[in-house]
Amino acid sequence: MCYSAMIKAEHHRYVREWGVDIGIAEFVQLFWWRWTTEETLGAQKRPRTPKAMDLGFLRDPRTDDERLIARYITEANARQETDWQRELFVQRARLVKAEQQLATKPTRKAQDDQRIAGAKITQLKGWLDDLQRTEPLPRDARIYPGWYAPVMVMEGGRRVLKPMRYQCRPEGVPADYDRRYPGTYNARRDNLRGPFWRRVFGVSHGVMIVDRFFENVQRDGQNVVLEFVPADGREMLVACLWSRWVGPDGEPLLSFAAVTDEPPPEVAAAGHDRCIVPLKPEHVDAWLQPGRHSLDELDRLLEDRERPLYQHKLAA
């Protein structure tokens, strides 16, 4: 299972290198949702987007819609900063009280409060520093299940870039599928024609551009995270399935899953049993137009894929 990946998140680069049109209405909707839900439902409910995608709009907005998105991001971040500063004040007061108690009459509760408050203060200060940072770092492009990422699709014969959630909810299923099937951020190649994925395999395909991916493996009875990178440094055009799900209130959800297959020998030797499927560049347009091909032909695109030699190391 590809539980995390480092992606190409800056939308202008897709325009430059792949000639895509930006699905700007979907980007506006996503960031409007993030802007409004943070205020109405709390920050924990807002859509998660990689900082690299946010910075693409904040650093170089070129249209009125992009400037609107930049405003949404700026205002949402300001509210988030206020919330974290408020919590930081609470934890600092908690720490002072605990230290005063420990100085006069030590108790187990005061010890716990000192430890917990200290840890939370460190965490909150790190979050605030990261929120306020404007210079990009490599980790800004990392996504996890439930996060949004830019995905290339085909509409009207044109490549279009749309923001989608990395956990696919196929059209027509109930919303609780996310909870019942939490692993649907990946789609096994040997299950694509089965009951779940046949709703989207051969119907709606996408491509996500990935630098590297991360997997959980067992080492000496403990879980560790390994980072896998093509030895030649190439980017991977990862085959994806996606769907447009519409809720009872008419609110749409665009979501996707990365296709996975049996791992190459070096990934298997590292302890993992699955691997994402990177398409050959010459197969991208065929993959993005599944209606023009049989399921057997589409499967052959997955078989005739790029096969980089992966190097791995413990993730930082």
Rank of each mutant, 00 (worst) to 15 (best):
V267F: 11
Q167M: 07
L298F: 01
R86L: 08
E10Q: 14
D176R: 15
M208R: 07
D113Q: 14
R62Y: 00
R67E: 10
R62N: 01
R188K: 15
L241N: 03
G194H: 09
E75C: 07
R13L: 11
H11P: 14
T49I: 15
T36E: 12
K280L: 13
T107N: 05
E266H: 00
V96E: 15
G56L: 06
M236C: 07
E227L: 07
V153W: 01
R159L: 04
R212C: 13
L102N: 05
L95N: 00
R274T: 12
F256A: 09
S4K: 01
L137W: 11
G233M: 08
W127H: 14
W18M: 13
L128V: 13
Q222K: 12
R67D: 06
A76S: 15
V90Q: 14
Y185A: 02
P150Q: 02
P150W: 02
M154C: 14
L288W: 01
W33N: 13
A239I: 00
P106W: 01
E227W: 04
V217W: 04
E282M: 06
Q167S: 06
G233Q: 04
A315V: 06
I143H: 04
V96S: 14
V151C: 07
V229G: 00
A76Q: 07
A119Y: 08
E303S: 13
Q80K: 14
K162W: 03
H283R: 09
A98C: 00
F57R: 00
R115T: 13
S204L: 11
G118F: 01
F31G: 00
V277P: 02
P248Y: 12
R219P: 10
L41M: 13
G271C: 08
C168R: 05
A110T: 02
R71C: 09
A258K: 04
L241R: 03
V151I: 13
L124K: 01
D220G: 14
L128E: 09
G19H: 01
R142D: 06
A52S: 08
R139Q: 15
W32L: 10
C275L: 04
K45E: 15
C275R: 03
Q100N: 12
G42P: 01
L253S: 04
D232G: 06
A316T: 15
A76Y: 06
E26G: 05
N186G: 02
E306A: 11
D60Y: 06
E87H: 12
R16G: 02
G118R: 04
V28R: 12
Q222D: 11
W84D: 12
P308N: 04
V267T: 13
V229S: 10
D113Y: 10
A149Q: 10
T82C: 15
G157F: 03
T74R: 10
P106T: 03
R234D: 10
Y181Q: 15
F31W: 03
C240G: 08
A76K: 05
D112C: 12
Q167K: 06
R165T: 08
P290A: 07
K162V: 11
M1R: 13
R274D: 05
R71Q: 14
V284M: 08
V96I: 14
A43E: 13
P170C: 00
I69L: 04
P281K: 02
